[in-house]
Design a binder for these strands. Structure first.
Lengths: 222, 222
DNA sequence: TCCTATTGTCACAACTCGGACACAACCGCC
DNA sequence: GGCGGTTGTGTCCGAGTTGTGACAATAGGA
């Protein structure tokens, strides 16, 4: 299930949004202020952050800046400040969308879902492409260098994970958690072996998978 | 240069947006209606589509549906229809954002750029830069003087530490603690050797690393 | 039930990295 | 200017990391 974080100091609004979201299949953690939000983010991997701006202790802009130091998680501002200046400031800090209060819950949900969809690299169509590699998340088919490529289940999941996090280094541990599951009991090197067969299956496009010595693997565009 | 397609039947608005965008580094193709848009998209790979809804021949919703058959390109609706119904319909069809007329050009630009950034998956998150040196903490890639630089793990960690403490002197002991770890059993001079290879790897930008006699090293802007 | 594809493990080969060392160059103090 | 101490430089080799081929266990379909 998708998992988002709502940072908002008004208790009533917090619970309204959470109830609405969970009724539509989005789990929703809550934080009262910026510092609480940063604490939660240290321990969880959220699919999106909904961020009020006017908050005690650390305001939304500050949280956004701190988050963007090392994370590309989708951020949506959610605020009474509707001025152009404020919106531009938000975008300059690397936010993804901006909703002014009062807002429609349905629209907020739609925007959040669109953002999550987009951050995973696919439009509604479920098509993911990067360099010479294309994935269809509906049919689980893969194309590389213009021709169809047959992938085993594990190879597909691994490639999907790399595609969703394209450009960034994923450690073997991260890959084991996300692809094999948290309960996998085996060796790190299982990743290496799967990477090897994936590279072979992709042919020339396999070169897009780079090894980062002592760290992990990264999918590059070329 | 980024390349977007604007689909809009009002001539004046078309050219206003195009001029503003190209002044800010976005090339902007124009289409008068949905059919012209689909024709153009057959021949071009756009980074984003800005789509009016009320148009002759084929309206924006129709274009969106047709595009999503086989493409995940970011789509932003741009319309006078500000009702909740219409927005939700847009999101259901797989659009990424929705702007109601009249709108601010600056905000439209910011939204478009945020979308492109997001769809490339390579946002500005995790970017550190100082003088001619840029470091991306998500990809662990380094740029110096405009070109890609290959760094070994230790070189990368060392540079990251210098960047995070730019402008201030770090003693060898501090560097050993922060980069090598508190349990390192070796010689101070290991730092010198790594600094040397780092300078060499950075080329001209290596001159930003200054030696502070009898003390340590400091990263300067020039 | 058998057959095949899949996948983790292991052992070994190939490779990268980085600290140590020795020596040269340099700095600053007297 | 000389001297002691500090830093830069070139090289080497072992330790650790990743690639590779083979194999056995397992799961899933016919």
């Amino acid at each position: 299930m998708e998992h988002v974080l709502l940072v908002e100091d008004e208790p009533r609004l917090r619970s309204i949004v959470r109830d609405y979201f969970s009724a539509h299949g989005l789990e929703c953690d809550l934080a009262r202020d910026g510092e609480e939000a940063l604490d939660l983010m240290r321990d969880h991997d959220y699919d999106a952050i909904l961020l009020d701006i006017l908050m005690p202790h650390l305001d939304g802009f500050g949280v956004c800046r701190a988050v963007r130091e090392n994370s590309a998680v989708p951020i949506l501002f959610l605020t009474a400040l509707g001025g152009e200046e404020d919106m531009l400031r938000g975008y300059a800090l690397g936010c993804d969308d901006y909703v002014t209060k009062p807002f429609s819950l349905a629209v907020l949900l739609a925007k959040t879902q669109a953002l999550i969809r987009r951050s995973r690299g696919t439009g509604e169509a479920g098509l993911l492409s990067w360099g010479a590699i294309g994935l269809n998340t509906r049919s689980r088919l893969c194309r590389a260098g213009g021709r169809e490529v047959k992938l085993s289940p594990r190879e597909y999941d691994l490639l999907l994970c790399l595609m969703r996090n394209r450009g960034q280094v994923l450690t073997r541990e991260q890959l084991l958690d996300k692809v094999w599951g948290l309960d996998f009991e085996g060796d790190d090197r299982a990743v290496d072996t799967r990477i090897r067969s994936l590279r072979a299956a992709l042919g020339d496009a396999g070169k897009q998978i780079k090894t980062v010595f002592k760290t992990g693997y990264r999918l590059e565009e070329v």
